[in-house]
Simulated scan of single mutants.
Amino acid sequence: MPLLPPFLPATDTLPPGRFPLSWADVETELVKGERFTGSTTRTAIFEEWKYHFTTVEALLGAVSRMWLAGSFVSGKIDPGDVDVTYLIPHDVYDAHETDSDVAEYLDNLGTRDWCVGQGMRVDAYILRLPETARFRDLGVTGAMAPGDREVFYQLGLYDEIWQRCRATPGNTQSDNRRGYVEVLL
């Protein structure tokens, strides 16, 4: 039984929402799925992304989870790359923020052209997760951790970006929204 809902006929993408999968589930659903048996790019892109993830994790020490979107999370047989957002625990992110070597390497890992130059078809973004853990602290003045307002803004921005898709030529009935995958680690 599939773990993802069927792709929407109008856009060939997931219905709007965030769909949690494990690494193994991503491979089963989006690489080895029956629909993709004729793909000439999915397996290689998946391997390149695994290498990219391993590099990010080795550099930082931890990745909390990831968001996948774009053509890799669609019915497109041969996507050109994988779009991924790495969500990094606040303490891990903050511990490396002042290290210029780590910051430069992270900047490279988050630059599509650099990744392609290294043989990885990965379009990556690296975001810090909020420090504020308790839900009830979110609306209380002074209870939210300093800087978390911007962190929540960035998370919301990328959530909205990943739920958008390009307009399908000639299709006026689609609202051009799509779903994306959250890879649970």
Rank of each mutant, 00 (worst) to 15 (best):
Y105V: 15
D99S: 12
T40F: 05
V116F: 01
V122S: 05
L59Q: 07
S71K: 13
Y125R: 14
L3G: 14
T41M: 12
W162I: 03
L127C: 15
R35M: 08
P6I: 11
L155K: 01
M144Q: 14
G33H: 04
A143G: 01
F19P: 03
L127H: 03
G156S: 13
T168C: 08
R136K: 12
P79M: 13
S64L: 03
G110H: 08
R164T: 11
A69Y: 13
K50Q: 08
F72G: 07
G110K: 02
R65P: 00
P20D: 08
T41R: 11
R65D: 10
E97M: 13
K32P: 03
L4S: 03
K32Y: 06
V82Y: 00
T111E: 07
Y180E: 03
D101T: 15
V84T: 13
A44R: 14
G179K: 02
V82G: 02
E104D: 14
S39Q: 08
D78C: 05
G80E: 05
L59H: 01
V73K: 00
T98D: 12
T111K: 04
V116A: 00
G156Y: 03
E104G: 06
I161T: 01
D159P: 00
V183M: 09
S71T: 05
L138D: 00
A103M: 10
R136C: 05
K32F: 00
S39C: 07
P89T: 05
G33K: 12
D91A: 12
D123Y: 09
D101S: 09
E97H: 04
G75D: 07
S64V: 05
A103D: 10
T168K: 05
V151I: 14
D113G: 03
T40G: 07
P6C: 01
Q173F: 02
L68Y: 13
Y93W: 15
L60G: 12
V122R: 04
P15D: 07
L185T: 13
L21C: 03
V63N: 00
V140D: 07
N108Y: 14
D94R: 15
Y125L: 11
L14E: 06
D25P: 02
K76I: 14
L184N: 02
N171M: 01
L59Y: 04
P5E: 12
E57M: 06
Y153W: 13
R149Q: 14
P16Y: 13
D91L: 12
G33C: 04
P15A: 10
W162Y: 14
L157D: 03
V82S: 05
T43P: 06
I161H: 05
F36V: 00
G156E: 06
K76T: 15
P2H: 09
Y153A: 00
A145L: 11
P15Y: 12
P2R: 11
E150F: 04
